[in-house]
Structures are given as structure tokens and as C-alpha cells.
């Protein structure tokens, strides 16, 4: 019937190098960093005494969103000094996710493991160092391994689980959550685009197939809309989890 062959995964997510060891993914990541910095530099240079206009409005909206919905909800008032870090994390991930639905680019830079894993390692370093500084190394690791308020024999079971989950599993699940979500979205878009292309170009006697190509195309439109939401949501979730980890390292459980 249809000669529908799904391309191997390497063709979907690998791109030819623009020049040595610099491909489209790197280009998107560099652009995301530049655009993100540009927004805030332009906003900072505008006159602060007048009412905000244009790009400054946007920047203030973003900072306010991070402050009210992420920092204040998880760390509290003394976490406000983490706003710059969390804002830049949020903006960078969001701008890396967004090219997944922009024509020409058509690829979220976070759908490759490199960027999520790097960000997760940075977050891992930060929350461990913050924990060791604000609680002292001994107290910090004691807090991780022996959470208070548990009957003594349970520690036999709890200590290894807590240690492995905080030190090893946390950064990996943080990275895999972002990576797999974006990759899954990208694969869905590829699948429906291929399906509607194959139906539009079908050369069989049953030419009812050709107008049927409309159906996957509408699904593709709907999924593109869905990806707008997912890109935002994943950036939000990554940032809020970072903030939760920092909060947990700053204030031990009682």
C-alpha cells in the first residue's frame, strides 16, 4: 500500500556539521544564549525612571514570573538572590526548546543529551556546594543520609536509597526528563509530517488516500500547538526542580 519507511533515528536528530564540530544544534544553543543575553542587556540599558516599554516589559515579566511562581513558592524570601541564576536557566532552556517548532530550524537543541546533561551537572554542583556551605559538609551529608524522625531500623533501608537518589539519580532524572520530553515531541512531529507527506504523494488506484492526508496534517498542526506548551512547561519544570533542590540544600528537614 504505502511505502512508509520511518527513517533511522540518526537521520532524525543528527545534522551535518556546518564547519568542524559545529552543527545546527550548537548553532541553536549559541543563538539561544545570545538572544537571551540581548533581551536583558537591552532591557537594562533602557531608562529606569520612566514607565517600562517594549523589551523592558518583556524582561520584567520574565523576572517577575520567576520570582513569584518559582522562587517564592519553593525557597522563600531568602532565595531571591537565586533569581538571576534561575532566570537565565529558564530563558536559556526555553529558547533552546522553541526552535523545535520554528520552521527552518525544526529541532529543539535540548533533544540531544549534551545540553540537558550539562545543565543538570551544573545544577548538581550548585545544590551540593550550597548545601555544604550553608549547613557545613558533615551536617549536610548527615541530613541526606539520616533524615530525622524515622525509627532506627529503617535507616538500614533508607540510607542507601536516599544517598543514591540524591547524589546519582537526581541529576540524571533531571536531564532525562528534559531530553526525553523534547525528543518525544520532535519524533511525534516527524511521524505525522512523514505520514501526511506519504499520503499526499500516494500513487495507488485508491486515490481516496490523497485527501486523507489532510487528517495527519491537522494532527501535525495540533501537535505543533502542543509543543509550544511543552517547551514552556519543560523549562518551567527544570527551573522549579532546580529551585526545590537548592531549597532542600539550604534548609534541612526538621
Amino acid at each position: 500500500m504505502l511505502a512508509l519507511e520511518f527513517p533511522p533515528i540518526n537521520e532524525v536528530i543528527r545534522w551535518r556539521d556546518l564547519f568542524t564540530s559545529f552543527n545546527k544544534i550548537s548553532l541553536i544553543a549559541v543563538l539561544a544564549a545570545l538572544i537571551g543575553s540581548l533581551i536583558f542587556i537591552l532591557a537594562a540599558r533602557s531608562d529606569a525612571t520612566k514607565s517600562p516599554r517594549g523589551v523592558r516589559n518583556l524582561a520584567e515579566m520574565i523576572v517577575e514570573f520567576v520570582e513569584n511562581n518559582i522562587v517564592m513558592q519553593t525557597i522563600g524570601r531568602d532565595g531571591l538572590r537565586w533569581t538571576p541564576f534561575l532566570t537565565s536557566l529558564f530563558i536559556f532552556i526555553y529558547l533552546c526548546n522553541l526552535p523545535g517548532i520554528i520552521p527552518i530550524f525544526q529541532m529543539p537543541a535540548t533533544a540531544r543529551m549534551a545540553i540537558p546533561l550539562f545543565l543538570a551537572v551544573v545544577v548538581w554542583l550548585i545544590y551540593n556546594v550550597v548545601g555544604m556551605i550553608s549547613q557545613g559538609p558533615v551536617h549536610y551529608f548527615k541530613g541526606i543520609m539520616f533524615p530525622p524522625g524515622v525509627p532506627k531500623p529503617i535507616y538500614l533501608l533508607l540510607t542507601p536509597i536516599e544517598l543514591v537518589s540524591t547524589i546519582i539519580i537526581r541529576p540524571f532524572s533531571l536531564a532525562i526528563r528534559l531530553f526525553a520530553n523534547m525528543l518525544a515531541g520532535h519524533m511525534l512531529l516527524v511521524t505525522f509530517a512523514l505520514l501526511s507527506e506519504a499520503l499526499f504523494q500516494a500513487t495507488t488506484k485508491k486515490f481516496i488516500l490523497v485527501p486523507m492526508g489532510i487528517l495527519p496534517m491537522f494532527m501535525l498542526l495540533f501537535l505543533t500547538l502542543f509543543e509550544v506548551l511543552v517547551g514552556f512547561l519543560q523549562a518551567y519544570i527544570f527551573t522549579i526542580l532546580t529551585s526545590v533542590f537548592i531549597a532542600g540544600a539550604m534548609h534541612p528537614e526538621h
Binding site: 519553593t74 532524572s173 532525562i176 531530553f179 525528543l183 512547561l233 519544570i237 522549579i240 526542580l241
Partner: peptide, 20 residues
Amino acid sequence: RTTMFLGIAFTEALALIGFV
């Protein structure tokens, strides 16, 4: 809503590992 997204994120991780 914040707590809900956290809960979703932790629950979803299992499905995503399956996807990987």
C-alpha cells in the same frame, strides 16, 4: 499548581525512561 507540576514531573520520569 506549583506542587502539581512537581508531582507530575516526578511521576512522568518513569514513563520517559520507558521512552528512552
